[in-house]
Design a protein around this nucleic acid. Structure first.
Lengths: 259, 259
DNA sequence: ACCTGAACACCGTTCAAGT
DNA sequence: ACCTGAACACCGTTCAAGT
């Protein structure tokens, strides 16, 4: 009668549930990585035989989807938390807040994020890492209510998800690499062994390449994206179309013409 | 004595090799996806028992690395192809060319690209999808020889890889989704079933969200990135440091101050 | 109603044995 | 030198059986 994970503190049996299974799975992945997550190790974690979870979950694939849903749903909990934002600030403030919310989730669950990034979403246009219909609805509502055209809002949604995916996937992969002390710091012998010759710059800049400026770079790229969306937004006419040639020109040609 | 895959056209036995194994593996993944790629299906593909490949490859993990290396190495083959580019054009033309080279690879091997994106690179600073030391060396050499500081070139490398990863991972995932006709076109009943209520914009814009403008969006974001790198580059002093406050300010504050 | 034991098909991998 | 057969540990999953 010792208190296993299925017995609460008053000695009563605590039954399994989809919720509890998914939370245990997330915890397991967070601590030990995706590769050691199996139905059997999950059973151990829950103090239960592996087959028991099939009562609550339609197989491994469904469980992985449940993990993704559970993590991204933490985002629109935060949306509801902050109702005054909905009307007070501009769309830039909203995208800024959303970007940092997703980044916080990614850093909190670095081993889950690749799952969010590469798992096939429910519909093709639900782009990682914004894999929640409610978040997408919120996104479109906010931008359109601030004067974006339909097409402009969708363009912004695509550009925004691409930005988040690239930056955060690379950021969490370095976080994971740091956490696993498999390889020591990249000393010179390490680099030398990997390459024959003629890699002078890589060798010389190994230390600079290893520096971590993830926060500053994220911020920088985000400001730049918001800036671009603003320019496109101002440029679009009522029908939401870009004036031909103005935007799609390579910028250096535009600069040349300006002189 | 019928001509199986291990017998050339004159009837001689063609022995296995690491090269041949990796090419067969890439072909298998390209055609049927990562999930059906096993040591056993690879054996079938090669006309050989599954255990035979262990003579040439140190297990499954090593084989996956071999796939990644083989695909990204097709990039610096193209580098050598085009020697006049090395000196003639500017760094913008080089990055433009490199971006389209990586994009072509991604679209040629959409099922391999997620492997390039999420597999752990040899060193932490070798960022996907530019997972080739020779490509990185080429990158740094080109930018530094065009006047970039060491730090500026490394910053550009980071921003460039984030851009490629986000855009191409999302692009190939839609390509894969189109190829597998598992789910039909997203008709209205489909969307309705996925959500209870209150998703007016998502529902109304389902058609717009499903449109494919991958090429134009890639081009647009690339031009914008090159523009940003150019501004940062011009702004850096000889020591490669950004003037404090000028760049990291949110753009709308800068705009306000300008008035 | 909820969990378990036994079983099945499949996977990666090792190693002695074949040719 | 190169490939194979048999075997092992492990995986996801099913289903009848236990409580």
């Amino acid at each position: 009668v010792s208190g296993g994970p299925n017995v609460d503190r008053s000695g009563h049996r605590r039954p399994l549930s989809r919720e509890r299974i998914i939370e245990a799975a997330i915890d397991l992945v967070d601590r030990h990585g995706l590769s050691v997550f199996t139905m059997r190790s999950l059973g151990d974690e829950l103090g239960v035989e592996p087959m028991s979870v099939y009562r609550y979950v339609n197989g491994r694939e469904d469980l992985l989807e449940g993990i993704v849903d559970h993590v991204v749903s933490q985002l629109h909990l935060r949306v509801d938390d902050d109702p005054q934002r909905q009307h007070a600030d501009g769309w830039q403030a909203y995208l800024h807040w959303l970007a940092h919310g997703v980044r916080a989730l990614a850093r909190k669950h670095p081993n889950v994020f690749p799952l969010i990034a590469t798992g096939h979403p429910a519909t093709p246009w639900l782009r990682p890492p914004l894999r929640s219909l409610r978040v997408v609805e919120d996104f479109l509502t906010t931008l359109i209510s601030r004067g974006f055209s339909d097409e402009g809002a969708v363009l912004a949604y695509r550009a925004f998800s691409s930005f988040l995916l690239g930056h955060l996937l690379l950021e969490v992969s370095t976080v994971v690499a740091q956490a696993s002390p498999a390889e020591g710091p990249p000393d010179n012998g390490d680099v030398d062994r990997l390459l024959g010759g003629g890699l002078a710059h890589v060798r010389r800049l190994a230390a600079v390449l290893s520096e971590d400026h993830a926060t500053a770079e994220f911020e920088r790229a985000l400001e730049d994206l918001l800036d671009r969306l603003d320019r496109d937004h101002r440029m679009t006419d009522a029908a939401g179309r870009l004036p031909a040639g103005a935007v799609w020109q390579p910028w250096w040609m535009v600069v040349t013409l300006d002189r």
